[in-house]
Design a protein around this nucleic acid. Structure first.
Length: 464
RNA sequence: GGUGCGGUACCCAAGUGGUAAGGGAGCAGUCUGCAAAACUGUUAUUCGCCGGUUCAAUUCCGGCCCGCACCUCCA
């Protein structure tokens, strides 16, 4: 079964065929590091992590690039307020990005290019657009002339007439057309020198949209297989990227556009102006990152995902059930991992992977994971160990390879814990119930719970 | 005004032209020293509303109602 991807450009589900066999070039728009990463970032990068993991699972070599927009109005403003260089502010939040994404178990991109490392390439790109007549310089600023690019609007399904009807874009005297966007912005008086570069048009800095066109073509070539980002980037950011790149090269910029839906709060978009904003740091204070990751997978990537405590609690319970089943299985399936050869397991594995082939349907994949969990619980004291080992291997493949959900390890190395458990089992045999209950409570207070098996043994599972 | 997405049980949610996956929660029971976990049963004759096509529609078509997003920086 081939991989199918819903392509924003065609607005259809298409069979995925990359330009080169077994190789995929993938560019995902990164963050502007002017503040701590939030839940919306988590959603986007978990979504593209699932895309990447599945492509890897299907044997593709994925060249994944993600940028940092480390020059930007907001960065300059914040840095100015804190009286530190922009680069320092950006680095602080880039560090935060990696710290939080690591907790979410996001695979690293091959490269994380930054705007400040690409200034010569950006200037050269803009100059070519001017030379080809797609851009013009006005008083130190350079603008892209939207009217010159006939296919403008093909991604966001708008035409300039529709845009004019929206009439929320102010008319600017410097621009020929109200929808023209900046490629190069002249330095304003009072702006620090560290965010100003020499150019043929005077001192200035790049506009927001040009960087992605430049970085992707420099690292991945003129046409890339997959370009991803949040739905809010479709217009104008990605529309503008197409205009820039295709005007320059005359070739298609991107084969497959993938856009993730938003995280909402009470059905409304999470935003600072609505004051319904959650940074990952604050969420991880309350919820384990594994729970957050699981929760983000419980809805198809293109739909909005409503964030709520009840939703997180539900995810937590579901994940606890998976953990418990896995740890109990681990305590009995101890021989080295076997290849999965049983026919029913191959069938469920195929069903699981097929659902990810179908536009990365993570929720459907999770349903097969739960089906597998139920098989494990049914068989745990009935099936031979060779069978249990296969179940364990498959469970690990689903969770750790495809879904990026790390699994708990048996904590038999904790001597205190083991002693408490052994003591409890001893007093249970002696029918000393008050003491057994006291020990159970002591274990509970250490963050573990006891699962008493029907055969008299007990397994400790860590509470999430 | 333009554009796009969606409305499935108590909650979240997948899905298909042939009669509703999964998760959470609840209830009853089994098991248990008591619990927990697990197991069994149970909670949508029905998929926003109204028409149409069809032997058959939640799934296709048309209309309507409602919600959300984008058109300004935003994952």
């Amino acid at each position: 079964m081939p991989i199918k991807i819903h392509n924003t450009l065609s607005n259809k589900k298409e069979i995925f065929t990359p330009q080169r066999e077994n190789k995929v070039s993938m560019y995902v728009c990164g963050v502007t590091p002017y503040d701590e990463v939030h839940l919306g970032h988590a959603r986007a990068y978990v979504v593209f992590d699932i895309v990447k993991r599945h492509l890897l699972k299907r044997g593709y070599d994925v060249n994944h690039i993600q940028n940092f927009t480390d020059v930007d109005d907001k960065i300059i403003k914040r840095a100015n307020e804190k009286n530190i260089p922009s680069a320092q502010l950006a680095q602080t939040y880039i560090d935060d990005y990696f710290a939080q994404m690591d907790k979410l178990n996001i695979l690293k991109a091959k490269k994380y290019p930054r705007v400040t490392e690409m200034i010569p390439e950006i200037i050269s790109f803009i100059q070519q657009l001017i030379d080809k007549g797609f851009a013009y310089e006005t008083n130190g600023d350079v603008y892209y002339s939207v009217d010159k690019f006939k296919e403008y609007g093909k991604l966001s399904k708008r035409n300039t007439e529709d845009l004019k009807a929206g009439a929320r874009v102010g008319v600017c005297d410097e621009k020929h057309c109200a929808f023209d966007f900046a490629l190069w912005k002249k330095s304003k008086s009072g702006e620090p020198a560290d965010v100003s570069w020499d150019s043929p048009w005077g001192k200035g800095r790049p506009g927001w949209h040009i960087e992605c066109s430049v970085m992707s073509s420099k690292i991945l070539g003129d046409t890339i297989d997959i370009h991803g980002g949040g739905q809010d980037l479709i217009f104008p950011h990605h529309e503008n990227e197409i205009a820039q790149s295709e005007a320059k090269t005359g070739k298609p910029f991107v084969k497959y556009w993938i856009h993730n839906g938003f995280v909402t709060i009470n059905k409304e978009k999470m935003s600072k102006s609505l004051n319904n904003f959650f940074t990952l740091k604050s969420i991880f204070y309350k919820y384990n990152p594994r729970v957050v990751r699981y929760y983000l997978l419980t809805q198809h990537y293109s739909s909005p995902l409503d964030f709520s405590d009840s939703g997180l609690e539900s995810a937590k319970s579901a994940l606890q059930g998976l953990d418990d089943a896995y740890l109990r299985l681990s305590s009995v399936a101890k021989i080295p991992a076997a290849e999965v050869t049983d026919e029913d397991l191959i069938a469920i594995k195929n069903a699981f992977l097929d659902s990810l082939d179908d536009d990365f349907n993570s929720e459907k994949a999770l349903s097969y994971l739960h089906e597998l969990k139920n098989m494990i619980l049914n068989e745990i004291f009935k099936s031979p160990e060779t069978r249990l080992t296969q179940l364990k291997k498959l469970f690990e493949e689903f969770c750790e390879e495809s879904l990026g959900i790390s699994l708990p390890k048996n904590d038999s190395s904790d001597e205190d814990l083991q002693n408490l458990l052994n003591e409890r089992n001893a007093v249970r045999i002696a029918k000393n119930w008050p003491e057994a209950d006291r020990l159970r409570k002591a274990i509970d207070e250490k963050g573990y719970k006891i699962v008493d098996n029907p055969d008299g043994t007990s397994v400790l599972t860590k509470k999430i």
